[in-house]
């Protein structure tokens, strides 16, 4: 099953490569990966998604934790959580019918059109990965020119938080 793993990491050179290296070294796949400094710029917050059963997920969490630079690691999938991904899609949209169709699709998915040319629409959409997948399916026939996805960011629901 899909796993969303959140890591609080020292914002130091080499730290990210250790995380990524661990996955290839141990034969795990990374499906998506996002990383950026937090409000405390000595810390990075990293979210990655991977596939695995409980045993594998437990091993991944433990192995990540063992890295000297990691401060906290959680498997968000075990509890209620919020998952968001940002997507930008550039679509072929030159005739009026298609432009109308894209607009209505964007509305249904609660996206926004963020750039317009005579021949294209660029759509911005945020949501969980399934929603973004569904949008892609919905506009596939129209003509996708380019897709950029940020990868998943995640946070636990409720009072739980990841902080030093």
């Amino acid at each position: 099953m899909k796993r969303i793993i959140s890591i609080l990491l020292e914002n130091e050179s080499g730290a990210l490569s250790r995380v990524v290296g661990l996955f290839s070294q141990r034969g795990y796949n990374i499906d998506t990966l996002t990383v950026a400094p937090t409000d405390d710029d000595t810390l990075s917050r990293l979210t990655l998604t991977t596939q695995g059963d409980d045993h594998m997920a437990e091993q991944i969490v433990k192995q990540l934790h063992k890295l000297i630079d990691t401060i906290k690691v959680v498997d968000l999938t075990v509890g209620p959580h919020i998952e968001r991904e940002l997507m930008l899609v550039k679509l072929k949209a030159s005739d009026n019918d298609i432009r109308a169709e894209v607009k209505s699709c964007v509305e249904i998915f609660r996206g926004t059109i963020v750039d317009v040319t005579p021949n294209t629409y660029t759509v911005q959409l945020a949501g969980d990965s399934e929603k973004l997948d569904a949008f892609i399916e919905a506009v596939r026939e129209i003509g996708i020119m380019e897709v950029v996805r940020s990868g998943v960011s995640g946070i636990a629901r409720g009072d739980k938080f990841l902080r030093v």
Partner: peptide, 14 residues
């Protein structure tokens, strides 16, 4: 060296 040794060290520093 930090890169080459990465999978076989407990930790490394530059």
């Amino acid at each position: 060296m930090v890169g080459v040794s990465r999978p076989i060290v407990k930790h490394s520093f530059l």
